[in-house]
Amino acid sequence: MKISIIKNREKKHNTILFLMGIGLLLIGWSLISYWLRQPILVPGPMATAEEIGKIVISSQFGPILGNTLLRFGAGFALTMFLAALFGIAAGLSPGLARVFAPFISLIKAVPTMAIILLAIIWLKSNLAPILVVFLISFPVLYWSWKTGIEETDGKLLEMAKLYRVGKVKTLCEIYLPSARPYVLSGISSALGLGFKVGIGAEVLCQPRFGIGTAMQIEKSNLNTAGVFAWALICVVLVVVMDQLAKRVFFRGQEKRKI
C-alpha cells in the first residue's frame, strides 16, 4: 500500500517535470521564431499546429502514414527476427561471433547515405526504405542480443547444468530473460534510429505515399511549417512506438525490481 502511494507520487512528480520540459521547449521555440520573424526559416508553434491540423484532416494522411508505418514495420520486423537469430547464435558461440564480426563491422561502417543510395539502385522506390531500415537497425539489435546472452549469469547456468535442465529450457528460461533488458534498450535505440533513417530514405526514394515524400513536397513548396508539422508527427510516432515496445517487452519486469 505504502509502496504504491510513493510510486504514484513519484509518477506524478515525473509527469510534472516532463510537462515543464515541454513547456520550456515551446517557450524557446516561440522566442526564436519571434526573434527571427521569418516563418520560412523557423515557423512558430501556432503555425506548425495549424499545419498539423491540416495534414491530419487531409485525405492523404491515412495512406501516407499507413505506407510509412508499413515500410518501417516490415524493415523492423526483419531486423527483430534476424538480429535475434544471429545475436543469440553469436552470444552462445564465440566462434560464430567471430565469423559474423566482419559483416557487422561492414554494415556499421558503410555511410548511411551510401546505404540509401545503393538501396535506391537495387530496389523499387517503395521497397528501398525497408532495406535501409533493416541495415541501419540490425547492428544495434544484433549487439543487444549478443551482449545480453553473453552477460547471462554463469552461476545460474551452472545451477541449470547441475540439475540437468535441457538446452531449450535453459535458452528460453535463463538466457532470454537475462538478455531482455539489453534487448529492450536496443529496441528503443534501433526504433528511433531506424525510423529517422527510414524517413530519410523516403525523402530520397520518393515513393508515392510516405512521410519523407510529403516532407519533400512541403520543402519544394517552401512550406517550412509543413516540414515542422511532419517532423512533429514523426516524434509522436516514435514515442508511441517506443512506449508500445516497452509495454510488450517490460511486462512483469517491475515486480522483480522491488
Binding site: 552461476k155 545451477m159 540439475y163
Partner: peptide, 26 residues
C-alpha cells in the same frame, strides 16, 4: 542423481518462488 545447494541462492530473479522450484524438473 545429485542436488546442490550453493552458497548463494541462485534463484532466477524473473520467476516466482514456486516457478523457481518447478524449474529444475522436466
Amino acid at each position: 542423481k545429485v542436488s546442490y545447494v550453493f552458497q548463494e541462492d541462485r534463484l532466477l530473479p524473473w520467476k516466482t518462488l514456486l516457478e523457481n522450484i518447478l524449474f529444475v524438473k522436466a
